[in-house]
């Protein structure tokens, strides 16, 4: 069984935000509008974390695109009282929207702030609904949602591979953020396949995960900036 994981190369990433926009288009996430955005109710399955270090002019700004880390040991599933969020057979941390009671324990349980609660019904105009992605259901008010690693694509990929009587190959299953990234900074695939790009990168000396000490064992790795490649001293 494949162990789906992602590697984000922070050297290649230009922090353009295309992954954030592509994710919202793919997964039918509505715009929140000025009022809800002001209340912090915007939903970004893929968000951008910014860390600024140092003082002018010796200053470093680090920007990390942040999807759901699909932890091996997810804290969110452990606190769900109804089993609405769980680790599915693909190893992905999945959400069953119909089962969610909106208690938001998992939102608080996630140390990466990757889970979002729908405080309001989805804000789509009638006209817009026609142009939504038919592969992804629109979430109602009162449930928690988060990055799914574009699991709806996996369904199609699996069907196709089965029809062609073969295993899923590296590169068959891609995520929307990966496809759109202009710098090809995002690699995605099976971490257990020693020949996949993602497992090669995840084993590189540059790879790290966020908040490793919590023991969540995220399946999203970052590659550090400016270490492998010979950089100029500032």
């Amino acid at each position: 069984m494949a162990r789906w994981g992602m590697v984000i190369d922070l050297d290649k990433c230009t922090a353009c935000g295309a992954c954030m926009a592509a994710c919202r288009e793919e997964n039918n996430i509505p715009a929140s509008g000025p009022e809800l955005a002001g209340d912090g109710r915007s939903i970004f399955w893929m968000d951008m974390l910014t860390i600024t270090e140092g003082e002018y002019p010796n200053i470093k700004k680090r920007m990390l695109p942040r999807p759901c880390f699909q932890c091996e040991n997810p804290p969110c599933t452990k606190v769900c009282p109804v089993g609405a969020t769980y680790k599915n057979e693909d190893g992905l941390v999945a959400q069953i929207y119909a089962r969610c009671i909106g208690c938001r324990y998992c939102v608080n349980g996630c140390p990466y702030n990757a889970k979002y609660f729908n405080w309001y019904p989805p804000r789509f105009r009638d006209e817009e609904k026609r142009y939504l992605n038919p592969d992804v259901s629109v979430r109602p008010k009162g449930v928690v949602e988060k990055c799914s690693f574009c699991a709806h694509r996996l369904v199609r990929v699996r069907e196709k591979a089965a029809a062609e009587n073969r295993e899923i190959a590296d590169g068959d299953f891609t995520t929307a953020c990966q496809d759109t990234c202009p710098a090809k900074a995002i690699a995605f695939g099976d971490l257990d396949n020693p020949y996949s790009e993602v497992s090669r990168l995840a084993h590189s000396v540059r790879a790290f995960t966020l908040l490793e000490d919590l023991g969540t064992r995220p399946k999203v790795f970052y590659l550090t900036e400016g270490e492998k490649h010979g950089r100029f001293k500032i």
């Binding site: 935000g17 295309a18 288009e25 105009r125 142009y131 496809d179 759109t180 202009p182």
Partner: peptide
Amino acid sequence: RGGLCPVGVAAMALLI
């Protein structure tokens, strides 16, 4: 080469 910027990705909104 397959990449887009956020505005290009979201430009479907211009249609409607």
